[in-house]
């Protein structure tokens, strides 16, 4: 198994996103991989609500969310951080295991924050994270210092470059710097759920060769899928490199 294989496996599952709204909502189509998800539009008369989005999985209704929440996730003005609200959480839950093809760094950070947030609220378990680029990692530095310092979480950070010099070593924080191309190619955040498997979640994505700054990947709340990723990372890059 490789991280690429995890991504390919998820891309093979199918969902349908139906936009019930007066007008089609184009940003969605640009974000998701069409062979993994079908995006449809059903026109509605305008009642001022803006409409809603329904996710269907294997022909079964999985859930709906107001189009406003979808806009919040996909149309955040440049420079604004994506804040994880109940609505974005509900939407992320619906769109889990759906391959996105065009997330920019801000959206990646938004999804990353959602997982870190869950880990922090759970307070126990293992959080493994690897940022494909050093600058993205630097942006998250304080978060990891504080996560390790203020919880019983076992935090593992994977990076090609050793940033231990720039982060005070905290209890519960382990830095891995394996010489592995995929650690430089993938952005991942994996939380095993700690005492509560329902909190397990993971994000895995790779920057696109044809469109730098854009990511293709998925997130999942499936505890088995998360356990597989966790076991893989632990086995492949388990022991921290000696400094």
């Amino acid at each position: 198994m490789t991280l690429e294989a995890f991504l390919d496996d998820i891309a093979a599952r199918e969902k349908t996103i139906t936009v019930y709204a007066p007008e089609p909502y184009e940003p969605l189509e640009a974000q998701f991989e069409t062979r993994n998800v079908a995006i449809e539009h059903e026109p509605l008369p305008d009642d001022g609500s803006g409409g809603f989005v329904v996710v269907t999985e294997g022909g079964e209704f999985a859930g709906s969310v107001g189009i406003n929440a979808v806009r919040d996730l996909f149309e955040v003005p440049n420079g604004n951080a994506i804040v994880a609200t109940d609505a974005t959480r509900a939407l992320m839950d619906l769109l889990a295991e759906t391959t996105f093809v065009s997330f920019d760094k801000r959206r990646m950070l938004g999804a990353t924050r959602e997982i870190e947030d869950r880990a922090y609220r759970t307070g126990t378990g293992t959080l493994r994270t690897g940022f494909q680029r050093f600058d993205a990692l630097a942006a998250q530095r304080e978060v990891y210092e504080s996560l390790a310092a203020n919880s019983s979480l076992d935090v593992h950070v994977y990076a090609l470059r050793d940033w231990s010099a720039e982060v005070p070593v905290a209890e519960g924080l382990t830095i891995h710097t394996p010489h592995a191309a995929e650690v430089g190619a993938f952005w991942f955040v994996v939380f095993d759920g700690g005492d509560d498997p329902e909190q397990a979640c993971a994000l895995l994505a790779a920057e696109r060769d044809d469109d730098p700054g854009r990511f293709r990947g998925f997130w999942t709340y499936d505890s088995e899928a998360v356990a597989d990723l966790d076991a893989y990372l632990s086995a492949a890059y388990g022991s921290p490199r000696k400094r």
Binding site: Y20, S49, F52, V54, G63, S64, V65, G66, A69, T85
Partner: peptide, 23 residues
């Protein structure tokens, strides 16, 4: 069932979510 669930949830709250149980 799908339309009435999703639409009324969105009408009551622009972010409103509808679950399987709601539907």
């Amino acid at each position: 069932a799908t339309v009435v669930t999703g639409w009324l949830a969105a009408r009551n709250d622009p972010d409103g979510a509808g679950s399987r149980a709601d539907r």
